[in-house]
Nucleic acid binder design. Sequence first.
DNA 1: GCGACAG
DNA 2: ATCTTGTCGC
Length: 229
Amino acid sequence: MHLDPGHDWSVTPQEAIALQRTLAERVLLQPGPKHVRRVAGVDTGFADHGRTARAAVVMLSFPELAPLETRIALEPTPFPYIPGLLSFRELPVVLHALEKLSMLPDLVLCDGQGIAHPRRLGIAAHLGVVTGLPTIGVGKSRLIGDYREPGMEKGCVAPLMYANQRIGTVVRTRRAVRPLFISPGHRTDHGSAVAWTLACTGRYRLPEPIRMADRVASARRGSEKNAVP
DNA sequence: GCGACAG
DNA sequence: ATCTTGTCGC
């Protein structure tokens, strides 16, 4: 399958920022998909002192959360890590892993922020605008915003605020663990983002799609295979 | 100028 | 993100 890159990815940090301001206008905040049969998790890992980027996408069935397909892409890392510009470092290789899927997901959980970003275009929102797919940002830590510590029980939440606006939700996905920073990417909203995240979470802190993609992307040695039907 | 800063 | 073994806690 051929997936459109969406735009030129060979940009300078300054051009990337300008691009984010434009693309952010195309982000759609609306209730997420009504029915989900397939949910994908994406994550990126690095090797060779950061010179090689490895994106992993794992497709799971819903609500069983059983792995259906795993795809990987390896490429030279194209952009340095700059807070706020993470998508220009990880999305190029992520898109190549995504286009290897035999079927499109109904929803994508992405490692990193959605609209909880200085210009409202974190990696999950960027991925959604480029692919047109509904996406949710699942951050393991905070990029921007203020919040009150949510309760310690699983399911406890607290709004993530920035410039007097809600940009996400701090969610306790498991008892007494560090909370996750959930924010809408594209074609989802605060409520649906949190609901789908919890619906995809089992006995671990990370929702299954992200946890499985994480495992594959960070695989130390050569699991450079591509499982396909 | 100073502090913060997804992965 | 990555470098890295055992260890403390539920």
